[in-house]
Design a protein around this nucleic acid. Structure first.
Lengths: 223, 223, 223, 223
DNA sequence: GATGAATGAGCATTCATTCAT
DNA sequence: AATGAATGAATGCTCATTCAT
């Protein structure tokens, strides 16, 4: 319908903002409320089934006000999800995860533990938006592209370097790095996903469970 | 008018059919075409954004015809997804997976290899419907309930027994069985999901990659 | 839409049947059940909101069966209402009311009493169909025409003669006969309508109430 | 979703407006046109057979506009009929009929004449809406309830008092007041209904005919 | 900046009727 | 005679978006 692909799109704008430094600083109180309501409703019903009128109502603003701040409903979705997508896979840029990837890191085990703890806390804190992200990625090609470029940049870049580093140090077995990364990532994602999404109400001992994950991975990869 | 929660619902009906033996045998040619079109379109746009008129058009039937076979659009979704949900987690009942859970199975390694191969082939074959299932589970409480009851029955039952069996045989380390199952399942799901959903176009050596998964898990759990 | 006005219509057919003597004798059991279900549902929801599929379902026949017996939904309505319209205003033809109009009738009071009793019993017995008739007359011009020709024939004919007869006998005041008829008919219809339609659940003493009506009319018209 | 019976409904809202003082004052020009078109079309085809798209078209607005002003098609019907139902039976509240019920009224005959004249003029002026009201009362339980509560309040209250008053004054015969009211009301309704609904095209001498009604009732009830 | 009335395309669903079996 | 699958137009209603105020 709309969507001239050559003109600069919403995601590019968001990227620029994020890269430039800080994001949407000057959100008015109304804009803030719109975003919060949108998160709630996108989470409950999914993007396609959410209506802007319900978002406006819950935010306590007029319908038109949403479109003053966000050109389309999709822009509203992206303004919620894209920054999260970036923060999820660009912990360096955001700054709350930097030391982990420092190759001077003592051991692979410490690295794993640090990544797990850090990303688990992050996911826990931002669960609703991450959920929306997961729910909408199948339907939004723009999100998917953003996902791949984010992941490629991080995994293809730093993570491979990390794996090579520890393999050269002889700490872990010399698997193809893509396979190796997928192994430990699967276990960590398996834990975080089960913990937060699938069985959030189970009786969890987080510390013990995380330690078991680390032990399992370390054994599995022991050189 | 609709929605009386005490009367037998669509999912219950589908369950009964499946348990009774074979499912929707006598689908007419038109019904078949409706279902295929629905799968295509649900996959592309998601359930909420799919329109019955587009489904009808692609199936080459009148719009009314859909509603002669499926009371509502949701019934159409469930008639596609629920049988798959069941086949995905009830391989025993369906019969294409029985020997795996036989506790006379030689070794945990063989068990893992068998499960992986079997479920990977299954997922590969039924990828579109499984994808729809994954996409819609966040929005359809009925699917979620069905998922939990299916999983609970399988995992809570047979899988725990399997783990205990191999732990007693001393083949694998004595972790809590929920944790142990989650570990190897994460690795297998991580492989299948990456292979089929995330990076289907990458250059994969399936055999080698599956062997790496098995090796990783066996090392990780080695007693 | 359809409805070529020059071809013989459904109502003409029904009229002919009725005049010829007895009506639709050879109704099959299924046709009977269709008619009964139709009466129930037309009564509950009105003709426009009644669906042929619901009628078929309640009658326990296939949808197509209705249209084998009645060309259209409207034909079904007319086959229910038109005979009733005729019986309601042509008591002579039907035969359960003849002596009333016999001008040899003893007194106006007896005449009134006889009409009231007779039509009250009739209305009570055929309440559902009469109700449908009243409900649909505003929307079906064919019914309205039929109503006027039935009434004109009866009222304009016999009733006027009756009034003139009793006025000449000096029993009642010499009002224009249209006015006179309207007066006593209003009171009788007021009673029957209130009794059966408006307040059917009130605590009625029918005999006493009817006598009051007669008394009121006789006083009102006393010469 | 809708239909919670405990939350205040449309009719309650309309009641409150009417009682509070004046009704739908600030109707926009479009809303006015919607209402007028709706009246025309409900009158012609009945509520069930009227389509919102035709109403919109005749009003010269978009179909969606109707639903901005009236939540559902039924709300539109009620917003037309309920105020009329109330004005029809609550002449006191509205103010155009007050002196009639003043028990200081000179004679029963004057009272009758005043009621007849007043309600006849009212019915004549608001014929279309009253017709819709009559047509839809059989199908709308909410209207029926409103009717009974309106009537009960007026008849059960003031009218009974009036009858008792004139009976005590010895002007009229001591019938049960319910019967007495039904008698004269039947005659008046019989006249107004015949005059406006059944035979509007006949050659009527309204003044003479009304006087005949009064005479008939006064004779019928003369003490 | 904020509003909310207005839009009209689009939606899922129902309908009376037909027709091959 | 009876069926019931098939039709496609029509229905009431919702939606994202626009724009005059």
């Amino acid at each position: 319908m709309n969507g001239n692909p050559s003109e600069p799109n919403e995601i590019d704008e968001l990227m620029k903002e994020l890269i430039a430094g800080g994001p949407q600083k000057k959100m008015t109180a109304k804009q803030q409320r719109i975003m919060e309501s949108a998160i709630e409703i996108f989470l409950e019903k999914g993007f396609a089934a959410a209506s802007t009128s319900e978002i406006a109502q819950r935010a306590g603003v007029a319908e038109g006000t949403i479109f003053r701040h966000y050109k389309t409903k999709k822009d509203l979705l992206f303004s919620i999800t894209v920054p999260m997508l970036i923060r999820l896979f660009q912990p360096i840029a955001i700054g709350d995860f930097t030391p982990v990837l420092d190759t001077a890191y003592a051991s692979f085990e410490d690295f794993l533990r640090s990544v797990l703890k850090n990303r688990y806390d992050f996911a826990r804190k931002h669960l609703p938006v991450i959920r929306i992200l997961l729910q909408e990625i199948p339907f939004q090609p723009e999100l998917r592209e953003q996902f791949f470029s984010s992941v490629a940049e991080q995994i293809g870049g730093r993570m491979t370097a990390v794996m090579v580093h520890f393999q050269e140090k002889g700490e872990i077995v010399p698997l193809p790095s893509a396979s190796a990364i997928r192994m430990w990532l699967s276990v960590l994602v398996g834990f975080v996903g089960t913990r937060l999404l699938i069985l959030p109400d189970a009786d969890w001992d987080d510390e013990a469970e995380m330690e078991r994950c680390i032990r399992f991975i370390m054994n599995g990869m022991k050189a």
